[in-house]
Amino acid sequence: MKLLRPLAGLAVLGLAAWLLVALFGSPPAAAEPMSFTSSRQCAECHAEVFAEWEESWHSQSWVDPEVRALSRDFANADCIDCHAPRPIFETGIGNRVLPRTARRVEGVDCIACHMLPDGRIAGTITNDAAPCRPVERRELVDAMFCAGCHDQHKTVQQWLASDYPERGQDCVSCHMPHRDGDPTKGRDHTMHGGHSLAELQKAVELRGVREDGLWVVEVENVGAGHNYPTDERSRASDVFWRPRGETTWRHLYRFRNPYRHEVGLEDTELPAHATQRLPIDDPDAAGAIEVGLFYKLSPYWTDPEAPDPDAEATLVHRVELAP
């Protein structure tokens, strides 16, 4: 015991010294402010997140061949505002975005979402010692953060009109879930949406019922917290059917919000929780039929008179209906 006393005394002294240093000592040296000219700089420390973002469609917003074709290589400059936006914290949360001039090829990049007006970086923690000097900003996960671009076609309004806000499910719940469902692992930056078959399949259900001798196809928005499809005018989802054994699909219905120059077309998107019922009044549909729900990233068919969804669209759901 006599031997232990001095040791215990030393331990207490050591602890006290550590406490003093911890309480009154110098904080970790602040990092040299880093100047960001490209989101590639972020990859030096955040390789995993950067790789996820590179896989995302946000990284493709300027270079994707379809958007380039639809905008005629951005000769339609109206598209630039959202496809190469200035930092959202610069224009303000919930405010409309503005176009930027530099690094357009990086699209909707790290800087667009995380750069603060003072040159620091918005993140989930504040850390003056890290090179990017992150500052905790909870607005990053707010639905209004996405609104500057994604509410231009009313997606956030559609979400607000649904019961998803009450359920506590917002944009990031579905499109940026925690990695492996673990909040300590941060959020997935691949931001899956309409390009993901799994997301599409979760969004809608396809079924058929027999009523008065007719097949009635039902498409229900069961999982999207907004219209199906939503956001981009170029998106379309088509219902086709064919008698069992036939190879050629017959068009039944299109879900789509048209471009504003398509003055003769109506907005037929399917709101959250809604069901669209589509009777097939055709003698060829008297027997067993096959129904397919297809999704298209571009609204146009090579041959509008004889669309080929197998070749030009993604099959989301298929059901076989037999009397």
Binding site: F89, R138, E139
Partner: peptide, 9 residues
């Protein structure tokens, strides 16, 4: 308490 972000300075 940190409220929602205001307009940028």
């Amino acid at each position: 308490d940190r409220g929602p972000a205001g307009p940028p300075a």
